[in-house]
């Protein structure tokens, strides 16, 4: 593989991440456009876009809540946190609020096990959570 091809190849994931950041998700059009710009089959770009959990192919809310459901958070009753978030924003994991403010997902270990239960909202980690802290935390995300 030539250096030029290497640069194009490595750019694929970087451009997909940038587009995700800009548009909040990767539409078929966006994926096709990136693939074309890099001289690559659309299938290859789509394959990468669907491999990573921080890349979405469906529209997401402005803020993405990720609740850690792995064992250390399970032991600290993450279900309580999930219930509290459901109560606050009225949607279940896998859904997006009608006003587009929040998407709500469950995720695997985010590396905050010493401060479980923990969640991420966008890039921010919130830890040592109790259900009563949730409302106030969510208020900061518009």
């Amino acid at each position: 593989m030539s250096k030029v091809q290497e640069t194009k190849q490595t750019d694929l994931l970087e451009r997909l991440k940038q587009a995700q950041h800009r548009y909040g998700y990767l539409s078929e059009k966006t994926i096709a456009r990136i693939a074309k710009a890099l001289d690559m089959p659309i299938g290859e770009a789509y394959g990468v876009a669907t491999f990573y959990s921080f890349l979405d192919t469906k529209p997401q809310g402005r803020n993405i809540i990720r609740v850690c459901k792995s064992l250390p958070c399970f032991l600290k009753d993450y279900q309580m946190i999930t219930d509290s978030i459901e109560g606050e924003i009225g949607i279940k994991p896998g859904e997006t609020t009608p006003d587009g403010r929040f998407s709500f997902q469950l995720t695997n270990c985010i590396g905050a096990c010493d401060k479980a239960p923990a969640i991420m909202i966008n890039s921010d980690v919130h830890s040592d959570l109790t259900p009563d802290k949730i409302a106030q935390i969510l208020r900061a995300y518009k």
Partner: peptide, 24 residues
């Protein structure tokens, strides 16, 4: 280089594929 959410990319060969812009 930042990953994009994939545990398996911690495996060395998957990680290198990810740096190369591919599925990990």
């Amino acid at each position: 280089r930042e990953g994009a959410g994939a545990y398996v990319c911690g495996e060395e060969t998957a990680l290198m594929d990810s740096i190369e812009g591919k599925r990990g």
